[in-house]
Amino acid sequence: MTAAELKNVSYIYSQNTPFMKVAVDNINITFEENMTIGLIGHTGSGKSTVAQMLNGILRPTSGDVLIRGKNMWESPKKLKEFRYLTGLVFQYPEYQLFEETVYKDIAFGPKNMGLAEEAIDRRVREAANFVGLSESVLEKSPFDISGGQKRRVAIAGVIAMNPKNLVLDEPAAGLDPRGRDEILGRIREYQQQTHSTVIMISHSMEDMALYCDKLVVMHESKPIMAGTCEEVFSRAEELEKAGLAVPQVTKLMMELNNRGYNVNTSVYTVEEAKKELLRVLGGEIKC
């Protein structure tokens, strides 16, 4: 079974007005189960629209959204169930916190689901643990903690709903390198422990390459590439043409290729680049 599937989906904003804009243009994307998938593209490439369609916030103008094999819009009454199936964390989610304590804020989602008190308590603590919030933070006001911690509370609030699929829109936006590595690392761990499907939206190729199993690249309302990181970065030149920044080491390999040295350009981490370069250099160590 696939985690989520978009079939011939289009989304048009402000249809029949002068401000009409096609955000997503007749696309087909399949998100497989039990992995972390990166959805990459520019602002305006349609990636955020896709995210909101996966959660049923937006209804496609045409086409079908299938979540775990079931059509989301078949009966709009059941929409809520689909929302619980696919959790969505918006960009800068810390601005949605509202409760008196961190605990209550994380419990908001599970409470809306009508869960029993004990189940809520268990989920809140589990979710807090996943994002790395200590017990002592739970009783604090969400407005008295640091920006990075707020972000974690907001993510925990969605994780606590136990979604089978978790979609995160730019989870690391605005964070410094330390905060970014921590949050992306936590999300990766969460995926591996729960075997759920995590879809991360980002415009950073470098980040996504490090934390995702597969990538989907969107450009001008359509997916232009999908596959493993190696597969995507082996087409680095196309990525550059689409105006997307490839990781520095990929770029370095392309430069070497341009200079006439035959190196594999589908590398994207320093480790791999080192291996590849040692291969061409013959591996001998000159002292």
């Binding site: 410094d176 390198p177 470098e206 520095q248 320093v270 680049a273 370069l277 160590i285």
Partner: peptide, 21 residues
């Protein structure tokens, strides 16, 4: 200090550590 280092810098330093010029 919790900062990033450019991938290029890292890569070349690691190779330099192995004795490459």
């Amino acid at each position: 200090a919790g900062l990033d280092i450019p991938q290029t810098t890292l890569l070349l330093q690691e190779l330099a550590d192995m004795g490459y010029d």
